[in-house]
């Protein structure tokens, strides 16, 4: 693999739910500071892949390595403390906590910070993710864009080395997507590694170094964003894949 230090590495990972195969013998590595985009039709196993990296699900076979350690058997909270931060595709806010408290609890638990240090860090993250004005609003009262931002803010609160973004741009308007891309680019500038699953391909192309296309639980294409989008198999998947086809097609042409 790459000569750079591998931050995350999946070796021969397989997973199935009954007869539905969501991952077959997957190999995947992410280097320190790398930004990897993942595209693929619905049901390709993208979110399942994230769950296996973050520890919400255990693979049936294969190993997950993070930062030089085998974390295959580690709980989600342990992986978070080790430096894997994730967002959820459908936001899962702490409804009754305020935005500030939601991020603070991440700084306490995932980030291992205390007192002043944790509060300053949480306030700083709210500033960077554009949630400062909502600091004292209950998370359950936020709109979709703010919920997606809060997902990112919470993940950042855990002081991650690797950030897993699961369709943070989905369901947002174009100007909102642009704002979000700016936030992600800011995060990247700090040297964090990012793995980003996204259907909004133009947001990905602007941000990532490398792109993967996942379908039927296996990797169909791997390379620079433009290479992957030009790949014949990828084009076929997207053209036959319903609503996403237009977006993917437009992007390859532009």
């Amino acid at each position: 693999m790459s000569p750079q230090h591998e931050l995350l590495s999946l070796r021969g990972v397989s997973k199935h739910f009954g007869r539905v195969i969501v991952a077959t013998d997957l190999d995947l590595s992410v280097a320190d500071g790398e930004a990897l985009g993942i595209v693929g039709p619905n049901g390709a196993g993208k979110s399942t892949l994230f769950s296996m990296i973050s520890g919400d699900l255990r693979p049936d076979a294969g190993t997950v390595w993070f930062d030089g350690n085998d974390v295959t058997g580690a709980h989600a909270y342990q992986r978070t403390r080790a430096g894997i931060g994730r967002t959820y595709q459908i936001p899962r806010p702490f409804e009754n906590l305020t935005v500030f408290e939601s991020v603070l609890v991440c700084c306490h638990q995932g980030g291992g910070r205390r007192g002043r240090d944790a509060a300053d860090r949480a306030a700083d993250i709210l500033e960077r993710t554009g949630l400062r004005a909502e600091a004292n609003t209950a998370a359950g009262r936020l709109g979709l864009l703010q919920r997606k931002r809060l997902e990112m803010a919470r993940a950042l609160g855990t002081d991650p080395k690797l950030l897993l973004l699961d369709e943070v741009a989905g369901g947002l308007t174009d100007p909102e997507v642009a704002e979000l891309v700016e936030v992600v680019q800011g995060i990247r500038a700090d040297g964090l590694a990012v793995v980003w699953i996204e259907h909004v391909v133009h947001a990905l192309v602007k941000t990532v170094d490398r792109m993967l296309c996942l379908a039927g639980g296996r990797i169909v294409a791997d390379g620079s964003p433009l290479e992957v989008l030009a790949n014949a198999e990828v084009r076929e998947l997207y053209l036959g894949g319903g609503p996403e086809s237009a977006t993917a097609d437009e992007e390859t042409e532009s």
């Binding site: 973050s54 919400d56 909270y77 978070t80």
Partner: peptide, 17 residues
Amino acid sequence: LALMAVRDEETAANAVG
């Protein structure tokens, strides 16, 4: 604070450490 997070969203609570 951690408890209140667990009460509101257990999966997410796990995921934030």
